[in-house]
Amino acid sequence: GAYRMKIYDRDELRGQMSELTDDCISVQDRFHLTEIHSLNVLEGSWILYEMPNYRGRQYLLRPGEYRRFLDWGAPNAKVGSLRRVMD
């Protein structure tokens, strides 16, 4: 299947937008971000990790809009890595 997600540095799907279609071992290295404040999962399911290298707390992201970090259940906006959930 296809995988696509848009990430934003501000809440409510605002601010600088970056797009992912594959795994990202370090959000900071690739996008120069340490925080993601909202996101829109367009295709596929993903796991968001608090730390790089797929470590730390993890949150399942199904397709849909997440307008603030509380929407995916996190206590803050800190994001380290993102990985696709393969079928």
Rank of each mutant, 00 (worst) to 15 (best):
Q28N: 09
Y3T: 15
D87L: 03
T21R: 11
G64R: 04
Y8L: 02
G80D: 00
R14M: 07
Y59R: 07
M17G: 08
H37W: 06
G44D: 01
V27W: 14
N76T: 04
R83P: 03
I47C: 05
V79P: 02
W46T: 01
Q28T: 06
P52C: 06
K78T: 04
L48K: 00
R68N: 03
S45P: 14
N76G: 08
I47M: 05
M17D: 13
Y49C: 03
Q28S: 05
V85D: 14
K78M: 09
D29L: 15
R14K: 15
E35W: 05
C24G: 01
G64E: 04
R55I: 04
Q16D: 11
L39M: 05
G56E: 00
E65F: 06
P63K: 09
R62K: 12
P75L: 10
I7L: 13
A77M: 15
V85I: 06
L61Q: 02
L39V: 06
L61I: 09
E43T: 09
N76W: 07
G73T: 11
Y59C: 12
Y3D: 15
M86A: 10
W72V: 02
G73I: 03
Y8C: 14
A77P: 14
Y54W: 05
L60A: 07
Y3F: 13
E50C: 03
H37M: 06
L13S: 15
V79G: 03
I36N: 01
Y66H: 14
R30I: 11
V27T: 13
S26P: 01
L60P: 11
R67K: 12
L48E: 02
R4C: 14
Y59K: 08
R10K: 15
L82P: 01
R68L: 11
S26K: 15
R30A: 11
M17A: 11
M5A: 15
T21C: 11
Q58I: 02
N76C: 10
Y49K: 00
Y66T: 02
D22C: 08
W72S: 01
R30F: 05
D23P: 03
G73C: 03
T21Y: 11
C24F: 05
D29P: 10
H32T: 10
P75E: 10
L42V: 13
L82T: 05
S18K: 14
G44V: 00
E19L: 09
G64I: 02
C24Y: 14
M5D: 02
E43H: 12
R55S: 04
L48D: 00
I7Y: 02
I47T: 04
C24H: 06
E43Y: 04
T34Q: 07
T34Y: 08
Y66E: 00
R57F: 04
P75C: 10
Y49L: 00
W46Q: 00
L39S: 04
A2C: 14
F69M: 09
R14T: 08
H37F: 07
R83S: 11
R62H: 13
Y59Q: 14
D23V: 00
F69P: 11
H37A: 08
R30S: 10
Y3C: 05
L48T: 01
M51V: 02
R14E: 09
G73K: 08
N53M: 04
E65N: 08
R30Y: 10
D9P: 12
Q28Y: 10
L48Y: 05
R10L: 12
R84K: 12
H37I: 13
D23W: 02
N76H: 04
V27Q: 00
R62S: 09
Q16W: 08
E19H: 15
T21F: 13
D22T: 06
E19D: 15
D23H: 08
E19P: 04
L70K: 15
R67S: 08
G44L: 01
Q28C: 11
D9N: 07
P52I: 03
S45I: 14
S45F: 13
D11Y: 05
R83N: 01
S18G: 09
D9Y: 15
Y59L: 07
A74T: 03
V27E: 01
H32M: 05
R57D: 05
W46P: 01
G15T: 08
Q28E: 10
E43C: 10
D22Y: 06
G80K: 02
E35P: 11
D11W: 09
T34C: 14
R57P: 06
G73Q: 12
G44I: 00
W72N: 00
F31A: 15
Y66R: 04
V79R: 00
D22I: 07
R4M: 07
S26E: 15
K78E: 06
Y49V: 02
Q28D: 10
N53D: 12
A74C: 13
G1F: 15
E12A: 06
N53F: 03
P75H: 13
I25K: 08
A74I: 00
W72H: 00
A2T: 12
T34F: 07
I25A: 10
R4D: 13
Y59W: 07
H32K: 15
E12I: 15
Q16V: 08
E65I: 15
F31D: 15
C24W: 04
P63Y: 03
E35G: 10
L42C: 13
S26L: 10
G1S: 07
Y54V: 01
Y49I: 00
D9G: 10
W72L: 02
F31R: 14
E43M: 12
R67T: 06
R68S: 10
R10M: 08
R83G: 02
L70I: 12
P52W: 03
E65V: 14
E50L: 02
